[in-house]
């Protein structure tokens, strides 16, 4: 299963990179979203995908899945959400003020190279 997940994560990283290299600001943010999904899944996969109960002691199971990567991913999800939300608002403001979402046109002003 880990092999399959590694391939999937590779695909996610590939698409994220391709989107980040495009011209549209919105696509770049979509790319970052895919990138964080990839990273979160990578954390989960590297923690091991062994069988076991959910990390709840009430289950009284003989073995549990590793709780630590889950805590790390939870933190990462919240942080990436905060950043994505902020980015999106920045992009929205940029649309409002500058009237474009084309990265090639967002190059500062003439003579300020």
């Amino acid at each position: 299963m880990e092999i399959l997940m590694a391939l999937l994560i590779g695909i996610l990283f590939m698409t994220a990179t391709y989107l980040m290299l495009s011209k549209s600001l919105l696509r770049i943010i979509i790319g970052t979203g895919l990138l964080s999904h990839g990273a979160h899944l990578l954390l989960l996969t590297m923690g091991g995908l062994k069988r076991g109960a959910a990390p709840l002691l009430g289950e009284h199971a003989p073995s549990y899945v590793d709780p630590l990567p889950q805590a790390l991913i939870l933190t990462a999800i919240v942080i990436s959400f905060g950043v994505t939300a902020f980015f999106l608002v920045v992009a929205y403001r940029a649309y409002q003020e500058l009237g474009t979402d084309n990265m090639d046109r967002l190059r500062g002003k003439e003579g300020h190279e």
Binding site: I3, A6, G10, L12, G38, T45
Partner: peptide
């Protein structure tokens, strides 16, 4: 395309080796 494929491939390879 080349760069993104390479990035994806390397991430996969590193994930596999690390595991």
């Amino acid at each position: 395309a080349l760069i993104s494929i390479a990035v994806g491939a390397i991430v996969t390879m590193i994930a596999l080796s690390a595991h």
